[in-house]
Simulated assay, not measured.
Amino acid sequence: LFFFSPRRNLAIGIGIQNFPEGLAVSLPLRGAGFSTWRAFWYGQLSGMVEPLAGVFGAFAIVLAEPILPYALGFAAGAMVYVVMDDIIPEAQTCGNGKLASWTSILGFVVMMSLDVGLG
């Protein structure tokens, strides 16, 4: 059953990540003058490549299984670095830097809780 599968944690993490990712595509388009519907549609289109990339990734995992833990750790660290290095300084100058910092910490705690508590 999927409910008791370790893959459930990965699916939950992907689901949590996909919502802000769609917003990150749609909101700038809306701000640039696109209609709400058109910005939403382009956000949806940006996510439609994920199933195809998922199939390609499944085949790649078979080949790269021995280095997979190291590669995933590196990718996670790179994503955290990009967010901390890019978003938080920008939020300090033209937004709410404390909110960006605290939500980054909250996101990290949620993902670690999913990893440790449900894994």
Rank of each mutant, 00 (worst) to 15 (best):
M112R: 05
T36H: 12
V110R: 12
L72S: 09
A75Y: 04
S101Q: 10
P20K: 00
G33V: 05
G47F: 07
L52N: 01
Q92P: 00
G15I: 02
L106S: 12
M112Y: 01
L114F: 00
L63F: 08
G73T: 05
G54F: 08
A76C: 07
E65D: 04
V80W: 09
P51E: 01
A76G: 12
K98T: 12
G117I: 01
L99S: 08
L99Q: 14
F34R: 07
F108K: 06
G15A: 04
L68H: 05
A71T: 12
G119F: 09
P28H: 02
M111W: 04
G54K: 06
S101H: 05
L114N: 03
W41R: 06
V49W: 08
P51F: 04
W37L: 15
A11H: 09
W37T: 13
Q92R: 14
R38N: 13
D85C: 06
F34P: 06
W102Y: 15
M84H: 11
G57K: 03
K98Q: 12
T93F: 08
S35I: 02
L72F: 12
F4P: 04
D115M: 14
R38K: 15
P51A: 03
N9R: 15
C94W: 07
R7L: 15
P6G: 10
A78I: 04
L52V: 15
P69N: 08
P69L: 08
A75D: 05
M111C: 01
S101E: 12
F59C: 05
F40T: 10
G47W: 05
D85A: 15
P28R: 02
E65P: 00
T93M: 08
G15H: 02
V116P: 05
G95S: 09
E90Y: 03
Y81H: 13
I61D: 06
R7H: 15
A24M: 07
D115E: 13
G15L: 01
G73C: 07
G117N: 03
L63C: 06
S35A: 05
L27A: 11
Q17W: 14
Y42G: 00
P69C: 04
A91V: 00
G107K: 05
I105E: 01
F56L: 15
